[in-house]
Amino acid sequence: MTAADGERSSGRLLTVLAWALLLLGLWLWGREVSDVRPGESTAATGVVAGVGRADVGPLPPAAEPLRGALPRRVDIPELGVQAPVVARGLDARGAIDPPPYDQAGVVGWFAAGVRPGAAGAALMVGHVDTETRPAVFYKLSTLEAGGTIRIARDDGEIAEFTVDDVAVVPRERFDARQAYGVREPGRAELRLITCGGTFDRATRSYTANVIVSAYLTGTGA
């Protein structure tokens, strides 16, 4: 093995370890569902069940992944969502840290992971509500298979994703690898994640996570 081979092997190992730690943190996050922090709503979320994979007929074929570019905006036409994207890291528990509650209309992207449109699963999170109003992903679980998500990127391209699954996953059945891992190798995939189910006043947390899965099917400008 050459020195270059050793460096590549070490890099791959570090990537695998980082992904494993992220999955562990996401598993803990999903099991606990995010305790309510100051300013978060104590009302039940507007959506209490996921629609799963609706029977909408054949979905479009996957497009070839794009080169990596930074996301700038998320557009979800069916929900009337047009939200800026900010880069986020991990919180103290090892889960993706969402934007602050005073930025409830902003979507957080896990910047150490995949860039939307590139091969792999890009991860984005947003709040469902605040103490006073719905937040950016309040209606997320009303999306259906076949719906469209557009990600405006800093290279001027619009990565267009087609929704292939919407699920509200109870915390006792949460599986981070299944929820956030790649569904089909080689595809450019996207996950949008928020709290879901109902609000449990006793534990001051939501009972589930809403997870929207989509894959790249085209581009625009």
Rank of each mutant, 00 (worst) to 15 (best):
A152C: 01
A152F: 09
L192H: 08
A202G: 11
L216W: 10
M124C: 04
R67T: 13
P99D: 04
D102F: 11
G108P: 10
V128H: 12
L143N: 08
A214D: 09
R204F: 05
G89L: 10
G108S: 07
S141G: 11
A145G: 13
G126Q: 07
G46V: 11
F174R: 12
F199A: 01
R37P: 02
D102V: 06
D200V: 14
A43C: 07
A111D: 02
P134E: 01
V182N: 01
V81H: 02
T142M: 00
R37C: 05
G25E: 04
T130N: 03
P185G: 08
P38S: 04
P170R: 13
F161Y: 13
V125Q: 03
R204W: 12
W29V: 00
T219R: 10
G94R: 06
S10V: 08
G196V: 04
L70T: 06
G186K: 04
A92W: 04
A3R: 13
R67M: 03
M1Y: 03
A62C: 03
E64I: 09
D155M: 12
E184P: 00
A159H: 12
G105K: 00
R37H: 06
M1K: 09
V56R: 04
V106N: 03
R115Q: 02
Q103P: 01
A4H: 13
G39D: 05
A188P: 05
G11S: 10
G147W: 06
A119T: 15
H127G: 00
R191S: 04
G105S: 09
R31D: 07
G197H: 07
Y206M: 12
T148Q: 15
L14N: 11
L26I: 05
T162C: 08
E184Q: 13
L24C: 04
A119H: 11
A63W: 09
R8D: 06
W27D: 13
V56P: 05
D97Q: 14
A92I: 09
Y138R: 09
E144H: 10
A159G: 01
T132I: 15
F110P: 02
G108D: 00
I193A: 07
A208H: 15
R171H: 15
D75C: 09
T130Y: 08
